[in-house]
Design a protein around this nucleic acid. Structure first.
Length: 712
DNA sequence: GAATGATCATTTTA
DNA sequence: CTAAAATGATCATT
């Protein structure tokens, strides 16, 4: 059966000439199907697209056949195993197969009502369902309903509405409903506050269906805020519940329901507002920016009209990173199809050529671009994944293999389109620098801190001959002078480290009742001041509330920039809220009125644009208690190399550590957004009060869209 | 046929 | 390790 699939009916040559397939570029002719904002090609950006508007000469020009499964484009047989066992998908005896009929794929309606109308309907469905719980359940779950009061619940929960078999009996319980509504209002109003302050209330249909850089970054920021807030609330409540919840999904659902998403109209090729190399930490993040719509499935696809018929084409895949064998350069990916395993009992079946598998097969023959998102193990977190957008690939071939259970599994070989910025391959290089199998080009010093930090910091120059920055003494922490406190602090008594939801922890209380860091050590507090545990606290050094005291957590490198002197960047990915470093140096007195002539100054008294328009502070105690000016000219750490940007990816927070009658103030830097490896770390130096005139003003080279043109 | 409701498939996350 | 989660495609029904 190796033959017969192609020859007779496949046109003159009997095999597909790959170059011709590529030459035809069938999908270019489909451009009208994917309306895009002017100037935004839906197809691979680096490719020249001179004939975008050429009318189609037909859906299947000569030499390009309709779909034959498992025929490689070059005509070699890629069908090692028999498929005729599956009469549903293949024609008898290996003749022309009959895949799932194309008309079974629903026509996507015009893009404007495609996504949004459906989601409207979904929410209507939910809202209209009665929430009725019988008396027994109510009394049984008295405790639970108390949790709703103290904790949070978005609405009177999908879980109850969706899965309870008891929901139709009994009368609605007012009290329960009220409780639920009250709580719903809390999260609802929280969300509304976010949306208002980020001006997402009047999020228009255009930005919803097609994004841009600012839109995606705002949406991701709001998602992160919301997710963190839900995490915080949930953790504080976990003593009561003790069940794992999914703040990532809940935050996503809330935003989706509000229509706060972008690129909701599906498209082939790049997604506006998402750049090759961007990283994500949750599948939901991929959904809300439209990079990959399914929340769980690994293959995203859409129906594409081809004259009368419609066929699915693949849009993007998320590789889980488990069993992919990639090429040496990281530009090849072998992807396994979906299905074939019963989730309940783990029983395996042959995979079927339907859904995503069929779409990939079609995309192989249509030669359209497929976005690839690489899922990698997060070495920092224990279980988490990092998703790297690795740009566009083309499917080169497909075949089927038998797995251990003797079931057919589809395999798709994807090859990265050349000319795109480095993404996944960069990760591979970095790994090699770390394990010593490859040398970092331009390396001057393996560790400029000479062991002063917990991790080495490389000094690298791959742009010119400068051998390093001017001499300074590396110190890992601020020589902070204690400030007297009004109230003596005894410190907390958390022997095993501070835990969320512990109302007896005095450090938690100082932070408005919530620990400012998540279990992964990521900043989740929005307060403008962080109270960490101090000398008199009994908790151990690895306490979650001592993040800024525990030294570097990411592998940094000081590097020579093209035009801004030395800069700082990270070999490791940093998630939003991740701790980077503190600002070390000497606290300098400015009250003598001395002019500070120093390029290594941190000055908390400058005015800063608030990062979050939403202030969570409940009291004045969370305001910066005293101004601080730090010089890192003679003594400093990596922070002194961080350049200014008007659109920064790092921000600072004042951190207080109290002990007895003294308070130590430190300045800690955290990631504003997810930062991919090797992206320069920058923060906003702030603006000097106007009465000081233009002194110290410098021309800004940050090149961001928000650039003020100068900095201090 | 169109509109709607119900179910299913997917796999990540804690 | 297991359970639970959300979306969108598909199926079923009106």
């Amino acid at each position: 059966m190796e033959h017969g699939t192609g020859s007779g009916s496949n046109g003159p040559s009997g095999s597909i000439d790959k170059s011709r397939v590529l030459d035809v570029r069938p999908l270019r002719t489909l451009v009208p199907v994917f309306p895009n904002p002017a100037g935004m090609s839906s197809v691979s950006t680096p490719q020249p697209t001179p004939f975008v508007c050429v009318p189609p000469s037909g859906p299947f020009p000569t030499g390009v056949q309709p779909f034959y499964p498992f025929m490689a484009p070059n005509g070699t047989q890629q069908t090692p195993h028999s498929f005729q066992n599956d009469p549903g998908n293949f024609g008898p005896g290996g003749s022309i197969p009959a895949p799932v009929p194309l008309n079974s794929f629903r026509t996507p309606t015009s893009h404007e009502n495609g996504g949004s109308s459906r989601s409207k309907r979904a929410s209507k469905t939910r809202a209209s369902r009665p929430v009725i719980i019988d008396d027994d359940e109510y009394s049984d779950s008295q405790n639970q309903s108390d949790q709703y009061v103290s904790g949070f619940s978005m609405h009177v929960t999908d879980a109850e509405v969706g899965s309870s078999s008891r929901k139709r009996r009994g009368r609605p319980l007012k009290r329960r409903a009220e409780n639920g509504n009250e709580v719903e209002y809390d999260v609802e109003s929280l969300l509304n506050r976010f949306l208002t302050s980020f001006k997402l209330k009047e999020f228009d249909e255009f930005r919803r269906s097609s994004g841009d850089r600012e839109t995606t970054s705002t949406i991701l920021l709001v998602y992160d805020l919301l997710r963190k807030k839900l995490t915080q609330l949930e953790e504080a409540n976990s003593l009561n519940i003790g069940i794992a919840r999914r703040p990532d999904l809940k935050a996503g659902t809330l935003l989706m329901k509000k229509g706060v998403r972008t690129n909701s109209s599906k498209r082939i090729g790049h997604v506006p507002g998402v750049e090759v190399g961007d990283i994500f930490f949750f599948r939901m993040e991929l959904c809300i920016v439209g990079l990959h719509a399914p929340t769980m499935a690994g293959i995203d696809y859409m129906g594409v009209k081809i004259t009368m018929d419609e066929e699915p084409v693949a849009l993007s895949i998320v590789s889980s990173g488990g069993y992919d064998d990639d090429g040496e350069a990281g530009d090849v990916l072998v992807y396994s199809g979906q299905g074939g395993v019963q989730r309940r009992d783990g029983q395996m079946f042959d995979q079927k050529l339907e859904r995503g598998n069929l779409a990939l097969e079609k995309s192989l023959h249509r030669a359209n671009d497929v976005r690839v998102i690489r899922g990698l193990k997060d070495l920092n977190g224990t279980t988490g994944k990092i998703y790297v957008y690795d740009g566009l690939y083309k499917i080169q071939e497909s075949w089927a293999e038998k797995n251990k259970s003797e079931c057919n599994v589809f395999k798709y070989k994807l090859v990265r389109i050349p000319g795109q910025p480095q993404a996944f391959s960069l990760w591979k290089s970095i790994q090699q620098w770390k394990d010593g199998t490859a040398a970092r080009e331009g390396l001057i010093l393996p560790d400029l801190t000479s062991g002063a930090e917990s991790l080495p910091v490389s000094l690298v120059n791959d742009v010119d001959n400068e051998k390093g920055p001017a001499h300074f003494t590396y110190v890992s922490t601020l020589k902070s002078k204690p400030f007297p406190t009004s109230k003596p602090s005894l410190g907390c008594q958390c022997m095993g480290g501070c835990q969320p939801g512990d109302s007896s922890c005095s450090c938690t209380q100082s932070n408005d009742g919530f620990l400012p860091y998540s279990s992964l050590g990521v900043l989740i507090s929005n307060n403008s001041l962080i109270h960490e545990c101090g000398l008199t606290c009994v908790c151990p050094p690895n306490c979650r509330n001592r993040i800024s005291q525990t030294g570097l957590r990411v592998r940094l490198e000081v590097f020579k920039t093209k035009d801004r002197g030395w800069g700082l960047r990270s070999w490791d990915p940093i998630r939003a809220g991740g701790f980077i470093c503190e600002y070390a140096g000497e606290v300098i007195k400015d009250d003598l009125g001395n002019e500070i002539d120093d390029d290594y100054i941190f000055d908390s008294t400058r005015s800063y644009e608030p990062l979050e328009a939403v202030s969570e502070d409940s009291s004045d105690s969370n305001k910066l208690p005293f101004p601080i000016v730090i010089s890192a000219k003679n003594n400093g750490n990596v922070a002194r190399f961080m350049n200014h940007s008007c659109l920064p990816n790092v921000h600072w927070k004042p951190v207080l550590r109290e002990s007895n009658n003294e308070t130590y103030l430190h300045i800690a830097f955290f990631a504003i957004r997810h930062i991919p490896p090797m992206q320069e770390l920058t923060f906003d130096y702030g603006v000097v009060a106007s009465e000081k005139g233009d002194q110290g003003k410098k021309k800004c080279l940050c090149e961001s869209v928000k650039c003020r043109g100068f900095f201090y």
